[in-house]
Nucleic acid binder design. Structure first.
Lengths: 210, 210
DNA sequence: CTTGATTTGTGATAAAGTTAACAGAAACAC
DNA sequence: GTGTTTCTGTTAACTTTATCACAAATCAAG
């Protein structure tokens, strides 16, 4: 089981499985078959079985998967055994919303640092955290051992801010700026851009009047 | 050129091309080769050429692509010739941030309705728009001709709210609730979940202490 | 006008990903 | 205990997607 050999597309589906399994677990459900999980997720049983089987034999014939056990295994595979500390860089409306969002802890993440370069914002508090001067990123990120950042700065400074973060030791960036970031090998990047999502739909929805 | 025959994965890349081309256009650049665009986007020239060629011959040998012309063509392909009206449903921190975001208009979208079911919020204004009672969705959505909604409600009511929107005539939903929505054939859905993005990265980043 | 450098669009090829199908294990009904 | 049903993990077949490689078009220089 060499981690590098497992296709990226399979890895990208695991968090989706995990999210649903955690919800089912909270609802008190004990087991689930690939068939049923596929129906819930709008995918096929074969794909779910194939994906999960990349990492071991977690199911049981005739019964399906034990939900708490599979949740545990997926969390381990995705390195979610411990909580990750995350920084939010750029405290505009969106950064503010992320800082206040209560849903990260159950998923394995905790926001532990906020950065902005606006003197008006520096020093203010959100959820008990103080917004720090972005110029302190190079010292504070290593100090706090932060490896992951959410980037919610304007496009004009996104690439340079990302570069600073990477130099400070950040290994993964969730980028909300609507621009493709070029980062060195070994740094992970995920892009979130609502307009891209909307534009992917309008192709299929068709003409506005029609 | 049957639209249905073009692979979804190609469609999903077009908005990414468009976003970059629009930025280059704003910077005053006139032409670009697939090679250079590939370097900017971290992809290959061949893929860009193949993707674009699905829809016609928009480039010129020896020169590359004319940026304003290609932008226009991509906008037309994606049905972005006119501005789409969009509703935001659920005005928490995130819905609030989306309602205030200034970046949609250049990308083809305009937020024209806000809904929430909290009496405290109904009637308040954001960017000149009044938050309306979510119970009015069935009448207001058709009235305003809205076909696209951004869904930022709690998980517990996400599916039922989506169902209401679809019954009201919505054809595409950008879902921010961390749950998979099951919608009828013909309705487009895109999911945005920051925790999923983070979890896709932690697989590769590895153990927190390591 | 010719030569050399670029660059597209595309048919052929290779790689990657998905689906189908089934042996074997487990559970269940009676 | 036996027969039936359920369900996984896996191999093989199939489908989709990405890459390669090149003819033909364009441009620039002299």
């Amino acid at each position: 089981m060499n981690r590098k050999d497992i296709p990226r597309i399979i890895i990208s589906r695991l968090p989706v499985y995990l999210r649903t399994l955690q919800r089912l677990q909270q609802e008190g459900r004990q087991t689930i078959s690939s068939q049923t999980l596929g129906e819930i997720l709008g995918t096929t049983a074969a794909q779910i079985r194939k994906d999960i089987s990349q990492f071991g034999e977690f199911g049981k014939q005739g019964t399906g998967y034990n939900i708490p056990y599979l949740v545990e295994q997926l969390q381990h595979i995705l390195h979610l055994d411990d909580i990750w500390d995350v920084a939010v860089v750029g405290i505009g409306d969106l950064g503010h919303a992320l800082a206040r969002y209560q849903g990260f802890v159950d998923r394995g993440f905790r926001i532990t640092a906020l950065f902005d370069n606006d003197p008006e914002k520096i020093g203010r508090q959100i959820q008990g955290l103080t917004i720090e001067d972005a110029s302190l990123i190079p010292s504070r990120i290593p100090e706090l051992g932060i490896k992951i950042a959410m980037l919610t700065v304007p496009v004009s400074v996104a690439q340079q801010t990302a570069d600073v973060l990477v130099r400070a030791g950040v290994r993964g960036i969730l980028n909300y700026a609507p621009i493709h970031l070029n980062l060195p090998e070994g740094v992970c990047i995920e892009h979130i851009d609502p307009a891209i999502g909307l534009q992917r739909m309008t192709y299929y929805i068709g003409q506005r009047k029609g």
